[in-house]
Amino acid sequence: MAWNTQQLADLADTTVKAVRYYHKIGLLEEPERSANGYYRRYGVPHLVRLLQIRRLSDLGIPLSDIERLGPASGDPEEVIDALDAELETRVTRLNRIRAELALIKQHRGSTYLPSEFASISPTFTESQRSLLMVYSTVLSDDSMQRFRDLLEHSSEVDDDFEQLPADADDAAIDQLAERILLQIRSTQETHPWSMDPVADAPGGRQHAAETMAEALVELYNHAQLRVLQRVNQLRQQSDPTPGSDNST
């Protein structure tokens, strides 16, 4: 018995497109053409192999793993154990993702932020969300968790900074900078790690600091950036570098 491509696909309950793709990636051996050179003629071995591919695919085994099995496995139990271990890893990952999605749904949180921010992200501004997304690429998981703990207790100062208009006058900028400086000092007393959050950055301290600074420049308006600059000036004035000469 010999079949053309369409007949073979029908027997295996698949499509001609799928058969041709299996040929392309080497899963299914191509048959010889008929005498007229137009139709491929498939035999029982082709049908059996195609049914094997369909069966393994239905079990959730990726085509790349099916290719590794070949037409016949020398030790099916060993292969099955290996594939079962891989599937267990995937199932664990999928369960983790489902748990994260459930948490995000429960709190109506942002899908773009780490799931631990789900319960507090609805109160974030768009700038805060974007900033945290950037931070998550350069900071350690531990530092991100600590940031989350800080943000859970958002203050009036934080809200005022987020809402500061771009045309804020000098008096408003100076006043807000002084309030932020007080908050920074209080935070550093209770959370010493905040003095150097990039200390354990996976990609290095300098890279993390530069990336975070660039994000601030891009995400906040002119007045907000002036506030941050003023905060740095006030810190330098009140906290001179140890060992510096201030007598002149």
Results as ranks from 00 to 15, higher is better:
E88C: 00
T123R: 15
M1G: 14
Q188K: 13
V79P: 03
E30M: 12
F117Q: 10
I53C: 04
P240K: 14
S143L: 00
R33A: 01
Q7H: 05
E78A: 09
A82D: 13
Q106K: 13
Q6L: 08
S115M: 14
Y39L: 04
Y220H: 10
S115P: 12
T125Q: 07
L131V: 02
R54C: 09
Q106G: 07
A172Y: 06
E30F: 01
D10P: 01
T89A: 15
Y21R: 03
L69G: 14
S247M: 03
T5G: 06
L28C: 10
H222I: 08
R146N: 10
Q188W: 02
G203T: 02
Q106C: 14
S155W: 07
L113P: 01
I173K: 07
V227Q: 13
V79K: 00
S244Y: 10
I80N: 04
W3I: 02
E189N: 12
H107I: 12
A85Y: 07
L59D: 06
A209I: 08
L150A: 00
M195G: 12
Q6H: 05
A209E: 13
V157W: 11
L83G: 13
E32S: 08
N4L: 04
T211L: 07
R55E: 14
R41D: 03
D141N: 00
S119T: 06
S127F: 05
D10W: 02
Q128K: 09
E100Y: 01
Q6S: 13
E77Q: 13
E218S: 12
Q224L: 08
G43C: 09
P240Y: 14
V48G: 06
V134P: 05
A82P: 03
G43I: 05
D13H: 15
L150N: 06
R96C: 03
W3H: 08
T248Y: 15
A209S: 09
L225S: 02
T190K: 10
D65W: 11
F147N: 01
A209G: 10
R235K: 11
T187V: 06
R40L: 03
A171T: 14
R68P: 00
R98P: 04
Q52K: 13
Q52D: 15
S119D: 13
S73N: 00
R129C: 03
A102F: 02
V198K: 09
G26E: 12
E88I: 00
L50G: 13
A199Q: 09
D160P: 02
T241Y: 11
E126S: 10
S121N: 11
V157I: 15
Y135E: 02
G60A: 04
D75N: 11
M133E: 08
A208Q: 09
L131M: 14
V19P: 01
V231Y: 01
N4S: 03
M144W: 00
D159Y: 04
E162R: 01
G43L: 04
H153E: 00
E214G: 08
E189F: 05
P114Y: 13
T125I: 07
R40N: 09
L228A: 12
D174I: 06
R54L: 04
S121D: 08
G204W: 05
D10M: 06
Q229A: 15
A177D: 03
H153Y: 00
R98Y: 01
Q52R: 11
A171Y: 05
V198R: 06
R41K: 03
S57T: 11
E210Q: 15
Q6Y: 11
